[in-house]
């Protein structure tokens, strides 16, 4: 007979490993599937200053490893596999992966999100060589050069601040005329004399001659086109949820996030959505961890009624 788990968790970020901690600590037979290594999007940032309990900050990779170790302490298992598809039509849910198939009574989806692309010509070809999505990883290759950051949220502004300390000049290109980022970022950014704001503007084209030379931007108010010369572009315009593998098995919103409230319950009984993958207002490490606990709680409740 095929093994049937109590709780199967997809994704090893903060939501996934918190769910794994709570589920295994509650004595449930728990397995977590991760395609690469613990941490998820946390590993793309440098220090995380807003996860409580770390008064000196903590780097995302270390926090991910600690969360994994914390869950494994109570018996949660991790297997490394990428999910290809799911079948939630029966009481025992089936998950198909690169490493075979798994059956479980409940599934907690915590696959998170990836950086959103601009979606313009040449982006894929230039990625890793002119176009970047991780300022913390790749910023140092642009020491004393000129770069552009696209976006106006917390991540974009944190990237611009980080880069301003390394590079000669940073252009911050944002589609509105004010930043969406929280206030704590504004003052340090305004104080940087090597950051220039390009308001009300979107990137229309990459200018290349094999290598990136700059970007063509359009002002949305005047429609004027202009060129910004820079050797690197760091894109930070939000995320896109990892939900392709779900196909039509579960209810998604128009942006492809899984529809679920604070209980993390989806439209399918026994299937839960935790962390960035879920429709929610605030996507943070701490809210992802919170979702993980909620999901494990409601999974346990569901199991007790089977």
């Amino acid at each position: 007979m095929e093994k049937v788990y109590d709780v199967l968790i997809l994704g090893g970020g903060p939501a996934g490993y918190t769910a794994a901690l709570y589920a295994s600590r509650a004595g449930l037979d728990t397995i977590l599937l991760e395609k690469m290594s613990a941490g998820g999007q946390m590993t793309l940032t440098g220090d995380i200053d807003n996860y409580p309990g770390f008064d000196e900050g903590v780097d995302g990779f270390t926090l991910g490893m600690k969360m994994q170790a914390g869950a494994e302490r109570f018996g949660a298992k991790t297997e490394y596999a990428e999910v290809i598809g799911v079948d939630f039509s029966k009481q025992n849910k089936r998950v198909v992966t690169t490493n075979g198939e798994y059956l479980s009574k409940t599934v907690i989806i915590a696959t998170g999100a990836n950086p959103r692309e601009l979606g313009i010509d040449g982006e894929a070809e230039l990625t890793g060589n002119g176009v970047h999505y991780c300022a913390h990883c790749d910023g140092r290759f642009y020491k004393d050069k000129t770069v552009a950051v696209v976006g106006g949220g917390n991540s974009a502004v944190a990237d611009a601040l980080y880069l301003s300390r390394l590079v000669k000049k940073v252009y911050l290109i944002h589609r509105r005329d004010t930043l969406r980022a929280t206030k704590i970022y504004h003052e340090p950014l305004m104080k940087c004399d090597n950051v220039e704001f390009v308001w009300d503007s979107v990137v229309k084209e990459f200018i290349t001659d094999g290598k990136l030379k700059g970007v063509k931007v359009q002002n949305l108010k005047t429609q004027d086109l202009s060129e910004i010369l820079c050797e690197g572009v760091f894109i930070s315009i939000g995320r896109k949820p990892v939900t392709e593998f779900l196909k039509d098995e579960i209810e998604l919103d128009s942006n492809r996030y899984i529809v679920a409230d604070e209980t993390t319950k989806t439209n399918i009984a026994g299937v839960f959505a935790a962390g960035d993958i879920r429709t929610k207002a605030l996507r943070q490490v701490v809210t992802a961890a919170s979702d993980g606990a909620q999901a494990a709680h409601y999974a346990e409740e569901y199991l007790s009624k089977l």
């Binding site: 490394y80 990625t127 890793g128 060589n129 690197g232």
Partner: peptide, 25 residues
């Protein structure tokens, strides 16, 4: 210009190159 970068080399020649973390498979 981006890390991690993975390069596959045969006989001293680059035959494959990719940037970013990716699964073992």
């Amino acid at each position: 210009m981006s890390i991690p970068t993975l390069v596959v080399m045969k006989n001293g020649q680059i035959v494959n190159k990719s940037t970013g973390a990716r699964p073992k498979t």
